[in-house]
Design a protein around this nucleic acid. Structure first.
Ligand SMILES: Nc1ccn([C@H]2C[C@H](O)[C@@H](COP(=O)(O)OP(=O)(O)OP(=O)(O)O)O2)c(=O)n1
Ligand SMILES: [Mg+2]
Length: 436
DNA sequence: GCGGATCAC
DNA sequence: TATGGTGATCCGC
């Protein structure tokens, strides 16, 4: 039995991020109802429900602790602690750099339209492995989202067209986009296939351009060269720029002026969920102590100060102040810490066949390691049951390894939790420290 | 160092 | 007839 609050949080978990934007063909309550209806009783749904309950327990413990600590709390002292940190952070505020975050619009979908113009303005999604990678903006009007199971998306939008993904094409188009943008900052940092951060300070100065004109020009050039549209945010640091790039999506840009007042006004009513790193679970936890917006962080600074370890006072204050890193650096090979390969497959209960499957996955990983020139010391095996529960077993070797043979060392570790359960999926995998 | 949880695309 | 793949980080032990 779910009480009303738990039910709400579970529905939100299942529905994924709602746009919050106008133009929904169905209202969000109706969307949630259809998703719950379609999911109910499935092993996936049950697993999500259990995880959601765990979070509920975690919140209960947190609130109890707050109650306990509040009895003996010296509010003035707690607030002073927060104020001290605020002053410390404020001293590091740097508004001198023009940071831009660019995010391609419905990236995989847009590439599919290039290759099949029939899809333009249609409700369609890019699928693989039973879930959607992304959906066209037409499809999003029906509540269809990234990460959603294909069969649920079809219930929300019966006319949804499903297209299988074409990764090599996305990689190719990503390269084309990135090479246009890199002309504006040779230190550009790409994030995934469809996002990038740039520091435009130098370019703007050298070409006597305002930040907004510079970004408009860059987006125009990207479109001319690739026929793809993107959205951009311009702000004094990476966190703010990323949030801004979402404001005028699709095919738009948003400029946040580099002065303290503009930044503080911007963050004041900003939902904490917009902060990169604050996802659905953290949002729920923070909301439970009365914080919904970045402005609320200041109001509740004493409580957060008290629950510093659980909530992270410093990082929340940074969100409140709109202070974050403005360093933009290109990807460096040394920053890679792990390389892995995983597959989900139909349930296998037979140990022999399971080991065969693990062999295939290890083979894939071995090949990826070879091509990338990687090796590593810690090997992690991840496996998932048909209940969707997943576990990991890791082993650190006394030398760096890369062969399939060596990867298998981890397969002989005991797996006490799954002895009597059929496997659903296994992830052969490994984590790294060093390149060859 | 290990395992679980969370997050991002 | 049905819920992906890759990589990173943080916390408590
Ligand atoms: N759970 C997810 C999220 C995203 N992607 C892929 C498909 C997207 O096209 C691409 C970029 O992710 P975005 O979050 O930027 O989403 P889109 O670019 O599709 O749409 P938007 O216009 O909202 O940026 O990454 C994925 O495979 N699985
Ligand atoms: Mg995008």
């Amino acid at each position: 039995m779910l009480d009303a609050a738990e039910n709400t949080s579970l529905l939100r978990r299942l529905a994924g991020p709602s746009t919050g934007k106008a133009g929904l063909a169905k209202d969000q309550t109706e969307i949630n109802r259809i998703i719950a209806e379609a999911s109910k009783g499935s092993p996936f749904y049950e697993n999500e429900r259990k995880k959601d309950e765990q979070v509920t327990r975690r919140i209960e413990v947190l609130l109890k602790k707050r109650e306990e600590l509040a009895k003996a709390a010296d509010i003035a002292k707690l607030e002073a602690n927060a104020e001290r940190l605020i002053a410390e952070l404020e001293a590091t505020r740097d508004l001198s750099q023009i940071i831009c975050h660019v995010d391609m619009d419905a990236f995989y979908s847009s590439v599919e339209v290039l290759d099949n113009p029939e899809l333009a303005d249609k409700a369609f999604a890019v699928t693989g492995g039973g879930v959607l990678s992304t959906a066209s903006y037409e499809a999003r009007k029906w509540g269809v989202r990234s990460g959603m199971a294909t069969f649920i998306a079809k219930k929300l939008c019966p006319d949804l067209i499903c297209v299988a993904h074409h990764f090599p094409r996305y990689i190719e188009m990503s390269k084309a986009v990135m090479s246009v943008m890199r002309k504006y900052d040779s230190n550009m940092a790409s994030w995934g296939l469809d996002e990038a951060y740039l520091n435009l300070t130098q370019y703007c100065a050298a070409h006597n351009l305002t930040a907004e004109a510079c970004v408009a020009q860059m987006r125009e050039e990207v479109h001319r060269e690739t026929k793809l549209t993107c959205s951009a945010g311009i702000a004094p640091n990476k966190m703010l720029a990323k949030i801004c790039s979402d404001r005028n999506k699709p095919n738009g840009q948003y400029y946040l002026a580099p002065d303290r007042d503009s930044v503080m006004t911007f963050t004041h009513d900003l939902s904490i969920r917009k902060i990169p790193g604050i996802g659905r679970v953290t949002e729920r936890v923070i909301e439970s102590v009365g914080i919904k917006t970045c402005g609320d962080i200041y109001t509740h600074r004493a409580a957060i100060s008290m629950l510093d370890k659980e909530l992270g006072l410093k990082s929340l204050l940074r969100a409140y102040l709109g202070i974050a890193s403005n360093v933009v650096e290109p990807w460096a090979r040394e920053s890679t810490k792990s390389v892995g390969s995983e597959r989900t497959f139909k349930t296998i209960s037979d140990t022999g066949r399971l080991l065969e499957k693990l062999d295939e996955i290890a083979e894939t990983l071995e090949s990826d390691l070879e091509h990338g020139g990687w090796c590593g010391r810690t090997i992690t095996l991840r496996y998932k049951l048909d209940t969707f529960q997943s576990f990991t077993r890791a082993k650190t070797m006394d030398r760096y390894v890369k062969s399939k043979q060596d990867l298998f060392a981890v397969s002989t570790l005991p797996h006490p939790r799954c002895r009597y359960d059929p496997f659903h999926g296994i992830d052969g995998d490994s984590r790294w420290a060093k390149s060859l």
